[in-house]
């Protein structure tokens, strides 16, 4: 019964979670929220993470009711992500692994999302749509790899929405994507005509629903194509944008037409969190993987298909 603690901090969330055999024992998280119109910069984000990481670690252990001695493996995000925040989290993971005499395990962030989604939804072999602020990928498993079937050729879908939110100064609390979703709900009327000027006033909610509908339709289309390629009857949506209900609804319509099943998780697990790193780490650790300290460097670029999946048939 391995117990794995997972450290995640590749973007503006810092989370530490503990998993024991598929059970989430704790999963505290903090978000670095910037003022409207401002994105999060690497050094400020790292400073935020440094300030709270030890408190979050304490919470993770307390909520799980565990002592360091009960932990079997320390997993952390190796990449991809922003360099300075990744280093911050890796430093603490390396130090506690040495203090507690436990093996260390570097985890690919995207694999963390996939394994957490599979654990929570019990989807067996789904076509995965991974959508977040930094990533947009359609992924399917084949022969010891999560293969990327399609991906964005420039910015991630979440980045697209975040940047738009920044331009028109939508609040970043709790997240720009959530606020866009709420505003877009009210704006369906303007879909046909996103350019909306009324006297001296402008309306943006119509543009937001227009943006949402357009980018989400694109994602549904590439997911459907990947399903057809693989003969897959399951879709799993992971990543921060994955908790958008409109995206889930649109994907659900496509799945229904194909007689396929849709799986998605709520914001506890689809937004970056520590338990997802613990869960992927748990699978990796059980299949015999560990990361030596000298190999524990972080990397800003780390593709999903670089990882050999040693824990699946």
């Amino acid at each position: 019964m391995p117990v794995v603690i997972g450290f995640e901090g590749s973007a503006n969330k810092i989370g530490i979670g503990i998993i024991r055999d598929g059970e989430v024992l704790s999963n505290p998280r903090r978000t670095y929220i910037t003022p409207p119109g401002q994105g999060f910069m690497p050094s400020d984000t790292a400073r935020h993470h440094r300030a709270v990481i030890l408190t979050v670690l304490k919470e993770a252990l307390e909520q799980a009711g565990l002592k360091p001695a009960d932990i079997d493996c320390v997993a952390y995000t190796k990449g991809p992500g922003m360099g300075a925040p990744l280093v911050t989290v890796a430093l603490v993971a390396r130090t506690v692994a040495q203090l507690w005499g436990k093996p260390l395990l570097g985890v690919n962030h995207c694999i963390g999302h996939i394994e957490m989604g599979r654990l929570i939804t019990k989807a067996n072999n789904p076509t995965v749509l991974y959508v977040s602020g930094g990533n947009t990928q359609v992924i399917a498993y084949s022969e010891q790899r999560y293969r990327i079937f399609g991906e964005t050729i420039d910015i991630a879908v979440g980045n697209c929405l975040d940047r738009f939110a920044r331009v028109i100064k939508i609040s970043n609390d709790p997240s720009p994507g959530y606020n866009i979703e709420q505003m877009a709900k009210k704006g369906s009327h303007f879909v046909e005509l996103p350019y909306t000027v009324k006297g001296m006033d402008v309306s943006f909610s119509g543009i937001l629903s227009y943006i949402e509908e357009t980018v989400f339709s694109m994602l549904v289309e590439i997911t459907e194509r990947a399903m057809a390629h693989c003969g897959s009857q399951e879709v799993l949506i992971v990543g921060g944008v994955g908790c958008n209900l409109r995206l889930q609804e649109m994907m659900g319509v496509m799945c229904k037409e194909r007689g396929a099943k849709l799986f998605a998780t709520d914001e506890r697990f689809c937004i970056d969190n520590g338990a997802m790193i613990a869960q992927a780490g748990w699978e990796m650790f059980r299949s015999g993987q560990v990361t030596e300290l000298e190999d524990s460097w972080i990397t800003q670029r780390y593709r999903t298909d670089e990882v050999e999946v040693t824990w699946r048939d």
């Binding site: 400073r47 440094r50 360091p68 430093l91 603490v92």
Partner: peptide, 15 residues
């Protein structure tokens, strides 16, 4: 910054 984070971690999470 990195050094002080490592020192704090040692202080808080034991000998």
């Amino acid at each position: 910054d990195h050094l002080s984070l490592v020192l704090e971690t040692m202080e808080m999470f034991g000998s």
